[in-house]
Amino acid sequence: MSFQQIIPSIKRELWENEKSILWLPTAIAGLMFLVTVSSWLLVPSFKVVGINSGSAGIDLSLFFTGMLFVALLFIAIWVQWHYFVSCLHDDRRDKSIFFWRSLPVSDALTVAIKLFVGAIIIPGAAILISMVFSLVLALIVVVSAIFGFDASVDFEWAKILKEFTYLAYTLLNFLLYTLWIFPVYAWLMLASAFAKKAPSAWVILPVIILLMIEAFAVDYLGIGSRFLFESIKDYFSFEVGQGESSMLHLSILQNTKLDTLPNLLLAKINLIPTLLGCGFMYLTYWLRVNRSQE
């Protein structure tokens, strides 16, 4: 295995999914950018970067950066779902697996590349696009303030730097988030490798059936406990206050210190779920090798 095999494999995945990975988030970011700049020019109540305590209006740069990041985050999650549940299933459905297998790339590398693209490249592209458009808006604001193109512009360098500190800090959170969600990614890929039809159904139905069996055993037969339900709930929930939990995402992203989210994510990264994810990945590889011709 060498970069001569890895790089073309990544390029292949990007080429096959270019519209959803690159062009869709870029189009959404561009549209939001145009709406934000138009609002700045047409709506007097918008205030640009660094509102002083005595001034009224909306901090345009912070507003744009936050809304853009949240929008692209949800777009990335949607693209990831679609990519993971189809990445191995589609190769078997359209028989393209035979062509790709004729190339000097092992099944293990193919599975690893698909995991890398889905877990790292897709959300990483969304973060990068968010940073680029936020930087462009910040540069427009700075130029407007320095050259006096808009007298209403009131910016503070400290706030601009703080914005990009938060954006850069998302890279650390992103890596921790990837480790936390790794078992989910592996489960999605296993469903994609196993399903002959409707891989999305194979993602959801086994979990629902197991939860229903567990509920029936506990509620009607008095056997055992809701171990599976509680395990899933605990893994995907966060303590956001005293005795309060949330199936988080946005609630803890607001008004938190820089070290809050990494600490919460670190607390969720456990050995057993990670080993479970590794088991799912091995089964995915086994299915790719032994059942790809079915």
Rank of each mutant, 00 (worst) to 15 (best):
V117H: 10
K233S: 09
F69I: 07
S192W: 01
L228D: 00
F238T: 02
K257S: 13
E13I: 02
I121S: 01
S55W: 11
K47H: 14
L172R: 01
G243K: 05
L171R: 08
T274V: 06
A76T: 01
S86P: 02
G54Y: 14
A125I: 15
L103C: 03
E18F: 15
L41E: 14
S38N: 06
E239D: 07
D91A: 05
L228F: 05
N173M: 07
L176Q: 05
H82D: 13
L261H: 00
V203P: 01
V35Q: 06
D234M: 09
F182I: 06
I10C: 04
C87Q: 13
G118K: 10
W78C: 03
E16V: 04
D234V: 01
R101D: 11
M1I: 03
V218M: 02
S246Y: 12
I146M: 12
G54E: 12
S237E: 14
S61C: 11
E230T: 04
Y83P: 02
W15I: 11
A27S: 12
S2I: 06
Q254C: 04
K11W: 15
Y285W: 15
F174N: 09
I213F: 10
F229H: 10
I21C: 11
A126S: 15
V105F: 08
L283N: 05
S134K: 13
L62A: 09
S102P: 00
V105P: 01
R226P: 00
K114P: 00
E18V: 11
L88C: 03
M281I: 15
S102L: 10
N52I: 10
Q80S: 07
I269P: 00
A29M: 05
V141C: 05
S53G: 09
S292K: 05
I58C: 06
S20V: 07
L228M: 12
S86C: 06
K114S: 06
I140A: 11
I181V: 12
I272W: 14
I181H: 04
E230Q: 11
W202Y: 10
I51D: 04
A195Q: 01
G224I: 02
F3V: 05
L287M: 12
W40P: 00
V48N: 10
P206Y: 02
L175C: 04
F116Y: 06
P262H: 06
A125K: 14
L172S: 00
F133T: 07
R93T: 14
S192M: 02
A217G: 04
L248E: 15
I213Q: 06
S152D: 10
F133E: 05
L275P: 03
L261Q: 08
T170E: 08
F174G: 02
L42N: 08
L261F: 07
P273C: 00
S38Q: 09
Y169S: 10
L287V: 01
N270D: 13
L287K: 09
L275H: 06
Q5H: 15
L210A: 13
R226E: 12
A217Y: 01
T284E: 00
P199I: 05
M212N: 08
W286F: 15
M189N: 04
S53F: 12
F116V: 03
A158H: 07
